[in-house]
């Protein structure tokens, strides 16, 4: 949460806004009129440290740590309701994705379970060419929820007993082609 004590302007990060502008889609936050349609439309804003409207305001004021440490970006479920309702047509979901990537890049991921899930998803897709839901959840539980592992059993069993949870992954035939593409992207650098 925002610290209650006074924050002096000199302590804020004035480069943060420029940095966000340079992210893909980041310059769009210039257009924000702080109307709050995004926060009002968001299905998860009630559990966010800062609802989306406030995130934009914090970015513009230079509250770097508060933005990147907040749970807001990880509670975004990509439902795109804010994006289609924004009167300034800001691609808010894309901005949230950009913030997620920046937070990962800067290591602001402590206690963020969604990061564990996403990173393992990427690993599996790079390995097999496809997602393997069984292995994804197993990796996730071991890395992020080991002490809560039992809570995943009932639903896992339900899926398995209904034949909805294949044990073995499917690897695409031309995985080399996919890897060549990914290697090239690596050379080109992210956008």
């Amino acid at each position: 949460m925002l610290k209650k004590e006074i924050v002096y302007e000199s302590t804020l990060d004035h480069d943060f806004l420029e940095e966000i502008y340079s992210l893909p889609g980041g310059h769009e936050i210039k257009k924000c009129i702080q109307c709050g349609t995004c926060s009002g439309s968001c299905p998860t804003s009630h559990v966010m440290d800062h609802a989306p409207r406030k995130i934009f305001s914090l970015i513009r004021a230079g509250f770097r740590e508060e933005v990147l440490d907040s749970n807001t970006i990880w509670f975004c479920s990509s439902c795109y309701t804010c994006s289609v309702r924004c009167p300034k047509e800001i691609k808010i979901t894309d901005v949230m994705y950009a913030l997620k990537r920046l937070a990962i890049k800067e290591g602001k991921t402590k206690g963020k379970k969604a990061v564990v899930l996403s990173k393992n998803f990427v690993k599996l897709v790079n390995k097999y060419g496809r997602n393997h839901e069984t292995e994804l959840m197993t990796r996730y539980i071991i890395q992020a929820e080991l002490f809560n592992a039992f809570k995943f059993i009932p639903q896992g069993w339900k899926l398995f007993s209904k034949g909805r949870l294949p044990l073995f992954p499917h690897k695409i035939k031309n995985i080399d082609q996919l890897r060549k593409i990914l290697k090239k992207v690596d050379e080109l650098g992210e956008i």
Partner: peptide, 25 residues
């Protein structure tokens, strides 16, 4: 034939250009 994962929401959260690239394949 031989389609790969689209990347869903998770890949985009980690790598942007890569997620577009696997989808574009």
């Amino acid at each position: 034939e031989d389609w790969n994962c689209c990347g869903a929401t998770a890949y985009m959260s980690v790598k942007e250009l890569m997620s577009f690239a696997i989808s574009a394949r």
